[in-house]
Amino acid sequence: MRPGLILSWALIVLVALWALVPGVFTGYDPIAGIPAEKLRAPGPGHLFGTDAVGRDLFARVVHGAVNSLSGAFVAVAVGLVLGTLLGLVAGSVRGALDEIVMRVVDVLLSVPGLLLALTVIILLGPGTVNVAVAVGVGSVASFARLARSEVVRVRRTDYVEAAFGSGGRFAAVLWRHVLPNSLVPVVALAALQFGVAILAISTLGFLGYGAEPPTPEWGLLISEGRNYLATAWWLTTLPGTVVVAVVLAASRISRSIGREDG
């Protein structure tokens, strides 16, 4: 394992712990502020500084992890399950069904992810779960395409033909050979999409379709900090840096999946 990869895993584990046991990392309340300590710059007392109503920004980032992470999990789950299923069916059955599925995927791909998400939001209404689902729907097409191309690739290999040649039934060969060998790149995409979903969820949160204030969602934090650009740089810069770091870590881990040297 390379140092960068170790760092990436460490960061993801840290953020996961923020989501699970935020109290261990900060004693401050993320919702109730101390007006006397408003707009303090980052320092020993407040690692990330405080906002306009005196809330500790680090506490808000730590407590916000659960929103971003769970949203990203839901989004990836939606994309992974729906997309992989579509791709698997298309790739293993082929024929007319394959054609239909792939044309549907073409249509989904022709609409940019954010617009697709906005369409889903206009139907379902705003909210954290809806945003997560909306982002997930946007990734169905990529999962479907990758899963299908992997299945098609693996089905052409000699070892799959050899499995049929040694008396394997269709379902057994699919389960024993095609599925395990096509899944690695799909898992790598899932890791990458985890980062992409965090980005998309924070974008939708920023636009105001996700969590309601004063929930400490990362995108919303940055949005709220916009009003203090001239006076309190940390309100936007620091939460954004956390988002960038988490997304970078996810993409680094994604690249290591399926490669032996990491």
Partner: peptide, 22 residues
């Protein structure tokens, strides 16, 4: 490229305003 793709566009805009304008 990995860094660029990991930056939320809205945040980048805000940071740019902060640096270049303020």
């Amino acid at each position: 490229p990995s860094l660029f793709v990991s930056v939320p566009a809205f945040w980048l805009g805000i940071v740019l305003i902060q640096v270049f304008s303020f």
